[in-house]
Design a protein around this nucleic acid. Structure first.
Lengths: 213, 213
DNA sequence: GTCTATACTGTGATAGAC
DNA sequence: GTCTATCACAGTATAGAC
């Protein structure tokens, strides 16, 4: 994977402009996808000239690559902290909450990731099969141990995680649809979603005496 | 919305080729997005020449428009049938199953839709705010009546629907990630998902005597 | 109706002045 | 280090032969 980042990060102004460009690129790439974005758009968004962008980065692909690199770190971080306290149900629900907060606070990152996966993950497939799979497998073993101890209801850990990812990221990736369907008064959609998702996963995770439903 | 479809559908061969082109375009658009796709790719996929494609459709956008039109009809159809039998919980779970089957059988349509929404729904925003919202609101009133009758647990109907859409479509839109994380033996992922999602929503929907969790 | 050849436009990237 | 001007190419679409 060509991940040729900007080699210019020495002076204060250089770091400032690099940040400025990456922020603009995140805005553009997350909205229009990689192919749908042009350097002109990024330049306009950043308030810089096109050649100036290309002075700081070795082309459009390089900017995209840097964004993806940073993204993966940010994205895996909440999952890494899963299981550091005691109560398993609360622990998983806290992870749900954290993921939903990320959809609210970093929707552009979520959409950048979604765009990449949707189109076959051409640039991060190796990371998915490597670091992401390792971390997920590790957390699935933890969840399985909670199941074996009877602390949460029996379920498939991998699919539980898929459900958490999909329901929370939906509020960032499909925000246009969410707002269209909710119509007026969408300002509290994240609060309502929080209550709903907490209820959803708590229902499923809480063990019951009568196992059969 | 420019929805200039092919006006050529009279002879047998014309209908055949139109279908052939639309199928090829669905394959390409769903994989690379609108901007990421070229007429060359569609032509190659369809086994036709580029000018031949443009003889049948008034440009790239027209093909995309026809696909989106057909998609919306297909996509809303399962939701329209929600509530035609008796048991509310089974009814909603059947809808979940139907949606999951669609992710399995029509992943390209799902990704085409996801691509469009993700990038702000430039071509179907009106349909989301109109037909989709109307239908969703109607079904939410139905769900609310089930809640009022105590037949399912109290919850937010809109967010329940969001959860159903996101969890089921995840298996089409994020299939690359699902397969990467599951690693080997991913052939039964839809069966496992089916069991998991049925359990997930059934847990949430089934009313309890003791209301507090 | 379908093809070959080609015009036109948008976009990524570079050269060279300042 | 940053800009203006420009190149080179890919991609949409059309003209005209057959």
């Amino acid at each position: 994977m060509a991940r040729a980042a900007s080699t210019k990060g020495n002076t204060r102004i250089q770091r400032q402009k690099t940040t400025q460009i990456l922020d603009a690129a995140l805005e553009v790439f997350s909205t229009y996808g990689f192919r749908g974005s042009t350097i002109d758009q990024i330049a306009a968004q950043a308030g810089l000239s096109k050649p100036n962008i290309l002075y700081y980065f070795d082309g459009k692909e390089a900017i995209h690559g840097v964004l993806l690199d940073r993204l993966l770190h940010t994205w895996l971080e909440p999952l890494e902290h899963l299981g550091e306290s005691e109560n398993p149900v609360d622990e998983i629900c806290a992870y749900v909450t954290r993921k939903l907060e990320m959809s609210r606070d970093y929707p552009r990152e979520s959409r950048l990731f979604a765009n990449e996966i949707l189109q076959g993950a051409p640039n991060i497939l190796a990371e998915l099969q490597g670091p992401l799979k390792s971390l997920t497998d590790e957390k699935c073993r933890l969840i399985q141990s909670w199941i074996d101890a009877g602390e949460i209801a029996p379920l498939d850990p991998h699919h539980l995680i898929f459900s958490i990812w999909s329901t929370t990221q939906h509020y960032a990736d499909f925000d246009v649809q969410v707002k269209a369907v909710l119509g007026a008064s969408t300002t509290d959609r994240f609060e309502t979603a929080q209550t709903h998702l907490d209820h959803l996963f708590r229902s499923m995770l809480t063990p019951r005496r009568t196992d059969g439903i």
